[in-house]
């Protein structure tokens, strides 16, 4: 019967992985006895396998882990890391939550008492109207002052409408021609 070397090699490979049944192992041993040159190769394969199996792992230097951790601490915090608020922020939020209920309760009570008492409501309305009248009078005074100023010195109007925009335009043009930061870097707009 012709020898099937390819199958024999595959069987040897499986033998190294301990995947052969007892029957297959017996067959392999029988084939190896009949073919001394293949038996030599099998011995070499087993020696190689033994060498690799029994050679231990190599460890890094003792300071390796601390070096890695130092490099990690120098990295920016990754986006996936969930940030926790500090103790101060947490205390502040807790205090705010604690104070919210009494403050809103007091405000509600004041509002209800004002709405149910006509005297208080009247006082409040007077105060609001008085403040509004004062603000309107102030705006009117400022407008009068401006009008008077424009009438006596018309140059102000001319400056506002012509000189200031023109100066700004010239300023921008000079800045642009001198080379804005973007132009200097040669970056595309």
């Amino acid at each position: 019967m012709p020898r099937d070397d390819a199958n024999m090699h595959a069987r040897m490979n499986r033998a190294l992985d301990s995947e052969l049944s007892e029957e297959e192992q017996a067959l392999l041993h029988q084939q190896l006895e009949e073919a001394p040159e293949i038996a030599d190769h099998w011995d070499q394969l087993r020696r190689t396998d033994e060498l690799l199996r029994t050679t231990p792992m190599i460890a890094p230097l003792p300071e390796f882990a601390s070096r890695v951790m130092a490099a990690i601490s120098a990295l920016p915090i990754p986006a996936f890391v969930r940030r926790h608020p500090g103790a101060g922020v947490a205390l502040g939020l807790a205090l705010a939550a604690f104070l919210t209920v009494p403050i809103f309760s007091v405000l509600l009570l004041v509002l209800l008492s004002a709405l149910t008492d006509p005297g208080t409501l009247n006082t409040w309305l007077r105060a609001v109207l008085g403040a509004s009248g004062y603000i309107l009078a102030l705006v009117a005074d400022i407008a009068d002052e401006l009008r008077a100023g424009i009438t006596t010195t018309p140059m102000i109007v001319a400056l506002i409408t012509t000189m200031i925009p023109l100066s700004a335009l010239w300023g921008w043009l000079i800045w642009y021609l001198m080379g804005s930061p973007r132009v200097r870097r040669g970056a595309k707009p």
């Binding site: 490979n13 190294l16 070499q44 394969l45 020696r47 190689t48 060498l51």
Partner: peptide, 9 residues
């Protein structure tokens, strides 16, 4: 494995 066995000789 074949290569390594040949090299190991």
């Amino acid at each position: 494995r074949q290569t390594l066995a040949e090299r190991l000789e």
